[in-house]
Nucleic acid binder design. Structure first.
Length: 197
DNA sequence: TTCGGGATCGACT
DNA sequence: GTCGATCCCGAAT
């Protein structure tokens, strides 16, 4: 299990290094294949830009290694891991994963159906986006603030073959002015679960 | 394969 | 009152 020292580092490094790692949640195991960095002090795309603190984003001001989960578009959730030191509001958004263990349980979380009953479309769109990640791993607002260093939810080293990493602009942050162009999104080149090419 | 609109509601102004 | 760190489905290409 990665410990708190992994998360207490510059957010861009954490976002980069999380690629290829394994996320473990209730016996479901998945490879992280796409991440985005949000760095509150300097990032207009971040909910905590310029240290702006609200009831929604307050979790980001805590010690790192915990989950920041918020609702979006009224019906979905996004899962982030808080990084860096206390009172420096930064996080990494997990945008896509590749589930490889206990996928039957994930399938019930995601579609309330068995793996064998899924269409090819459903298989292709299983966890290639932040809302889908949360559905698959059964994460919602009630999990906001839980430790990502616990038996219910943690990250461990992966076992992927060597892979290339692509840097790009982040997705759907058109309001973020100068921050729109920051290359703070990272994904595994060629992975089938990356949300947007 | 791509595009556009609807869903849905809490957070913020 | 406005809108979003999204997803899904149906229609058009």
């Amino acid at each position: 299990m990665l410990d708190i020292s992994f998360y207490n580092r510059p957010t861009l490094k954490v976002a980069y290094d999380l690629l290829g790692k394994t996320i473990v949640r209730n016996n479901i195991k998945a490879t992280i294949v796409e991440t985005e960095a949000y760095i509150g002090p300097i990032d207009k795309a971040c909910h905590a830009y310029n240290f702006h603190k609200t009831s929604r984003n307050a979790i980001m001001f805590n010690d790192c290694g915990i989950a920041y989960i918020y609702q979006i578009y009224g019906m979905y959730y996004c899962f982030n891991i808080v990084t860096e030191e206390k009172d420096k509001p930064c996080a990494v958004l997990i945008r896509a994963i590749d589930i490889f263990s206990n996928s039957e349980r994930a399938s019930n979380n995601r579609y309330n159906k068995s793996m064998s009953d899924l269409s090819s479309y459903q298989l292709k769109h299983f966890s290639n986006g932040p809302g889908k990640v949360c559905m698959s791993l059964d994460l919602n607002k009630s999990h906001n603030g839980i430790k990502v260093i616990s038996k219910d939810l943690y990250i461990e080293e992966g076992s992927l073959e060597p892979f290339d990493i692509v840097k790009s602009k982040r997705i759907n942050i058109n309001y973020a002015e100068d921050a729109i162009d920051f290359l703070w999104r990272f994904y595994i080149k060629g992975n089938k679960n990356v949300s947007v090419l």
